[in-house]
């Protein structure tokens, strides 16, 4: 079904909180650029996935939440041979999996 609210009603309800979230994301990216140390933030697989997700956000093709979930998801099909760690990372760690 459609959302029962009109576009204006959705903006009335959700604009401010999402404006806040957008600024948080902007500040997170700025913070990475101001980071201590010399490494490039794009070396981090999570940050790379995050930037890819922003590309999906802006590609104008809709269905954004589901497609961004897939950007972060493990695309492989076979079960892992053995447990590597208890907790997930939040993004697929391709280099780790290749080992």
């Amino acid at each position: 079904m459609k959302c029962p609210l009109t576009a204006t009603q959705i903006a009335d309800e959700y604009f401010i909180e999402n404006r806040h979230r957008l600024l948080d994301i902007a500040a997170f990216l700025d913070r990475l650029e101001r980071s201590a140390g010399s490494e490039d933030s794009s070396q981090d697989f999570r940050v790379r996935a995050f930037r890819d997700a922003i590309g999906t956000l802006l590609d104008g093709r809709g269905d954004r939440a589901r497609r961004i979930q897939m950007v972060f998801s493990d695309p492989t099909l076979e079960p892992r041979a053995a447990l590597d760690r208890k907790a997930a990372y939040g993004a697929f760690h391709a280099d780790q999996e290749a080992k």
Binding site: Q69, M70, F72, S73, D74, P75, T76, L77, P79, A87, A88, Y89, G90, A91, F92, H93
Partner: peptide
């Protein structure tokens, strides 16, 4: 179902 990057594959399995 598993968390985060493991959820989609785990749900399918």
């Amino acid at each position: 179902t598993p968390h985060l990057e493991d959820k989609h594959k785990g749900t399918r399995l």
